[in-house]
Design a protein around this nucleic acid. Structure first.
Lengths: 207, 207
DNA sequence: CTTGACTCAGGAATGATTATCATATAGTTT
DNA sequence: AAACTATATGATAATCATTCCTGAGTCAAG
């Protein structure tokens, strides 16, 4: 039990959420500014194989960690990835049902619920468009920026040929970028084959 | 519904396991040799958001895909990552229990079991050592090879200082490599602070 | 006071997935 | 059918999370 390992465990026990390795890393850096992310990963792995903490493999790519070893299950938000605890009473029935099935030697089980957490639920009700907004990536490639700048200069909606003339790009490439920009919500098409920049697109250019 | 998307869906429906994207890619290449892995990923994503297939986020890093939309749950092997179906009768009781908890708007749930599949279970019984053997990576870095070669030349067990003399490495570096080599099973320590190469280490050198 | 066991920080490497973009294909509208 | 747009694909680069590698530091036992 090294110093860093103690800090990592203490920091995890302080947390009421179920932090990911890098979230924990950010919090620990305040106490141990020189600690490395690899050390956090290594010690979380050691602690979980030693059975001192639990590793949760839910809700997307990043694994989350839980200091609470008592038997309980989780509910996670599909929008913001938040994870909360949830208690169930039917737990005992589950392993019995599955026993001796398929010839597996069953060593564990888990129940997971997912849906929208109260906060995300409220956000959805207030504004429908926001969910696509929040999810769309904000970065712009060079080509996308060129197209967007050309659109910003034009007062009226223009076709991809006009844009191609205004930039160094070919018409084909322009159409390709427009599709990507539409998906990000930076461009819209008031008439078929004519495009304008959206307020969000303006904002993206300014950054 | 494009041709490749049809093929991908058909190939998935043919499979009784729950393949990963790259497993599916390997199978599909037989029919469409020019298809790209990105297309497989893209279409699996499209099909699953369209609700035509299910994306499983269980058992480690790689996501798996399931053509069977009927309500069922899974059991996965901790050793070989294999995933099988499992039927439960208590399903209906679960969502009722969790309803209105934590203010979440629950849209789904799943139950997962894990353990050892029949095959891995048998392998464990037959030979205890095999699991560590099978897991250890076989590659050698330059420094590791140097140390191992020096040990191979020596008839008797020798300390890290002897090895340092025989190679261009410092004593500290040698000790570091020895630790790594011991973990791989290429070196053992008959007496404290004295090391010899193992038959596995000889084999690794020969490759 | 050596010697080796153990751990760390930092960076490189890896594996899985996603984004980009030029090209190919499939639709629409005139 | 021509002219054009819209969408999908294949190849590849980029990204993200995680793990591996290595030289250096620390500590305890001999």
């Amino acid at each position: 039990m090294t110093h860093q390992r103690e800090i990592i465990l203490a920091e995890l026990k302080k947390s009421t959420d179920h932090p990911t390795a890098d979230e924990l890393y950010e919090r620990i850096k305040r106490q141990l500014p020189r600690i490395s992310l690899a050390t956090v990963y290594r010690n979380l792995e050691i602690l979980s194989t030693a059975g001192m903490i639990r590793k949760l493999e839910i809700s997307g790519r990043q694994k989350r960690f839980d200091w609470d070893l008592r038997e309980h299950h989780h509910i996670s938000c599909l929008r913001c990835q938040r994870v909360d605890n949830i208690e169930l009473e039917v737990q005992e029935m589950l392993p019995a049902q599955a026993e001796d099935r398929q010839g597996y030697d069953i060593s564990g089980w888990r129940v997971e619920f997912f849906g929208l957490c109260p906060k995300c639920r409220k956000d959805t009700n207030n504004s429908q468009g926001e969910e696509t907004m929040a999810c769309a990536p904000k970065g712009l490639s060079d080509n996308q920026r060129q197209v967007l700048e050309a659109l910003a200069k034009s007062k009226e909606a223009c076709g991809s040929k006009d844009i191609a003339a205004a930039t160094s790009l070919e018409a084909k490439q322009v159409s390709c970028q427009i599709t990507a920009l539409k998906k990000k919500g930076f461009v819209e098409s008031p008439i078929r084959c004519k495009y304008t920049i959206t307020p969000e697109g303006q904002g993206a250019l300014g950054e």
